[in-house]
Each structure stands twice: as structure tokens, then as C-alpha cells.
């Protein structure tokens, strides 16, 4: 599609190099950066549906949770050594989650607007409640993931690069998708799904694939985060609507919906703010979160990139009418 501008390659290279060096440049903050990558996946995968396709999901955390549990169960029950079990766990997590999203997608993605949003909200909470009662998954007390066979420093480094890999793969996959027919098709669905159907677009197919892609990367992230935290709680970690679940939405909006860089930026800004200020709030964090959602949604729904774009439209490949006479039109 559109040829990417040079500065985008520079940006990607810059971030990539920095990401590789961070464990040695800022060794004390390695966990924070690991979570930054996780946040980027959250925001990007949410935006795939919410921003690019116009399907605002309140329950994408479902796939994160499925991933976390599936991976942990495989690790617990497979009897393999740590790394083999983890690899197998991540694979199963991704497959299971993708399968669930494909199955659900056929029905749930047929809903529009309010109904889709509330239905996904229900899905996320229902999953948390079911996990919270299911003995096999440790019920309400959750699951503990296996001990990493090695020192703390090594463990941090391992999970840093694991998250970085997931995030990098996710980013480039989405970037490639957005440049292809797929990206334009889901944009068309966002702008007018009835029209897209009337033009013969395979809307169900595109929507389902989009959801599966999101589910795939969320599940991998879920598997990694479960191990990173070392503990999976059904309502506060895996299917936590009030933290990860809304953060996804908030970060994507904050950065700018419907762009590839917006969610990345939003995740970075949100995560940084959170790391800097959250601890000063002593338990009032979630109150602040609620207030923040309201403020951003009401006063800043276009997000940072949307705002920049409004200010300098030409910079973003959006042409301003150069030919006001409308040449051919008056012919």
C-alpha cells in the first residue's frame, strides 16, 4: 500500500536498538520495561478491533486470561522440563485462544454497536467467574506458575526478551496486515459495514481473522505474564476487567485509535505515568483510573496522534484539497 516514510524506518530501528540495549542500560527497570512491552501488545491488539475495525470490545482480556491459564495448566501437568513445558504451554495457549475466538467470533462478531460491546464485557467477566469456581484451575485461589530454574536476574532477562519477541512479532504482523488488503477491508467495515456487505466483501471472514489475530497475541502475552507474575488470580490477573481489560482500551484511545503508532505511544505514556505516579496514590489508583477514563473519553477522544493529525494533516499522508476548482469535475 502506501510506502512507509523514511522516518518510520528510523523510528523502528531506534526503538529496536534501544529495546535490545535496555537490560544493560537500565538494569534496575527491566521488569517495568517487560510490562511496557506487554502493554504495547494490549493496546495494539485492542486497536486492531476497536480502532481499525470499529468493533469496540470490552472483553479482549478474555483471550489474555485463556492464554495465562492454558499455559499454566500445560506447565503444571505436562511433566516436561521448564523451557519445553513453557514453549508447549505458550503454543497451546495461542492455539486454544485462537480457536475460542474463531468459534465465538462467528456469533459475537455478528453483533453491532452496544450489543457487541456489552456482550464482550459479559464474556470477560463470565470467564473470570467461571475460572473462579473451577477447581481444576485452582478456583478462587488461582494458580501458581512453576519456579524459574535459575537466578532472579536471568529470569528477568529471559522474560524481558520473551515479551519483547511477542511484542515485536505482534507489531510487525499488524503493520504488515494493515498495509495489505486486510487493513483496508477492516477499515471499510469500520466506516460502513452495510456498504461493505453490499459490495460483496467477506465481512465475517475479515472480522473473524482480525479477532483471531488479536486473540493469538493476547494469549501469548497471557502465558508470559502468568509466569512473570508467578501467580494467576482469576479476577485480578487473568480476567481482570478493572485493570488490564480497561487499560487496553484506555491506552489505545490515549495514543490515538486506528493507527499503528497510536497504541504504542498510548501504552508508553500510560505505562510511564502509571509507574511514576501510581505509587503516590496509595490505594486510590483505581479511583484515579475511573476518573482518567472519563476525562480522556470526554475531553480527549481523538488521542495524542489524532490531535497531532488534526493540527498538521499534511504530515500524515492525508492530502488537503490541492485543486479546489475540481478540474475534471466541471468538464
Amino acid at each position: 500500500m502506501k510506502r512507509a516514510p523514511v522516518y518510520e524506518y528510523l523510528l523502528i530501528t531506534g526503538i529496536g536498538v534501544a529495546a535490545l540495549l535496555i537490560p544493560w542500560l537500565l538494569p534496575n527497570f527491566i521488569t517495568q520495561f517487560t510490562f511496557l512491552w506487554v502493554m504495547v501488545v494490549f493496546a495494539l491488539t485492542w486497536d486492531l478491533l476497536g480502532g481499525q475495525m470499529g468493533y469496540n470490545s470490552f472483553g479482549n482480556v478474555l483471550f489474555f486470561g485463556i492464554g495465562a491459564y492454558a499455559c499454566a495448566v500445560v506447565q503444571r501437568d505436562s511433566g516436561l522440563d521448564y523451557f519445553t513445558a513453557l514453549a508447549l504451554g505458550l503454543l497451546c495457549a495461542a492455539l486454544l485462544s485462537t480457536a475460542v475466538s474463531a468459534l465465538l467470533g462467528a456469533g459475537v462478531l455478528g453483533m453491532r454497536g452496544h450489543y457487541f460491546a456489552i456482550c464482550t464485557l459479559g464474556l470477560g467477566v463470565a470467564a473470570g467467574e467461571i475460572a473462579g469456581g473451577w477447581e481444576y484451575l485452582g478456583a478462587g485461589s488461582g494458580m501458581v506458575t512453576p519456579q524459574y530454574p535459575g537466578g532472579i536476574g536471568e529470569r528477568d532477562l529471559f522474560y524481558y526478551f520473551l515479551s519483547l519477541t511477542i511484542t515485536g512479532t505482534g507489531f510487525f504482523t499488524l503493520r504488515r496486515l494493515y498495509q495489505s488488503r486486510f487493513g483496508i477491508a477492516i477499515n471499510a467495515i469500520r466506516d460502513d459495514e452495510d456498504k461493505a456487505e453490499a459490495m460483496g466483501l467477506h465481512t465475517t471472514r475479515y472480522k473473524t481473522v482480525a479477532w483471531c489475530v488479536a486473540a493469538f497475541f493476547l494469549a501469548l502475552t497471557g502465558g508470559a505474564v502468568g509466569n512473570l507474575i508467578g501467580f494467576i488470580d482469576p479476577r485480578d490477573v487473568a480476567f481482570s476487567g478493572a485493570t488490564f481489560g480497561v487499560w487496553m482500551i484506555l491506552m489505545a484511545i490515549l495514543g490515538g485509535k486506528g493507527t499503528i503508532w497510536g497504541p504504542v505511544l498510548g501504552a508508553a505514556v500510560f505505562h510511564l505515568t502509571q509507574e511514576l505516579f501510581w505509587n503516590f496514590l496509595f490505594g486510590w489508583q483505581r479511583v484515579a483510573l475511573g476518573a482518567l477514563i472519563v476525562l480522556i473519553v470526554v475531553f480527549f477522544p481523538q488521542g495524542i496522534l489524532g490531535w497531532v493529525r488534526e493540527a498538521w494533516p499534511e504530515r500524515f499522508g492525508q492530502c488537503v484539497d490541492t485543486d479546489r476548482q475540481g478540474g475534471e469535475e466541471t468538464r
Partner: peptide, 27 residues
């Protein structure tokens, strides 16, 4: 401020209010 805006904004804004009130009550 959100009455005439698109439905996603009103959903998310009321969701934010919901979290706010719930957490306030908790505190």
C-alpha cells in the same frame, strides 16, 4: 457532554464512572 456523541464514547464514559464509583465506595 456525551449525550449526542457516538455510542462508544457514552459506553466508555459511563464505564469509567462505574469504576470510579465502585472504587470510591471501596475506599
Amino acid at each position: 457532554r456525551i449525550v449526542d456523541r457516538d455510542l462508544f464514547i457514552s459506553l466508555l464514559a459511563t464505564f469509567g464512572i462505574s469504576i470510579l464509583l465502585q472504587q470510591l465506595a471501596n475506599q
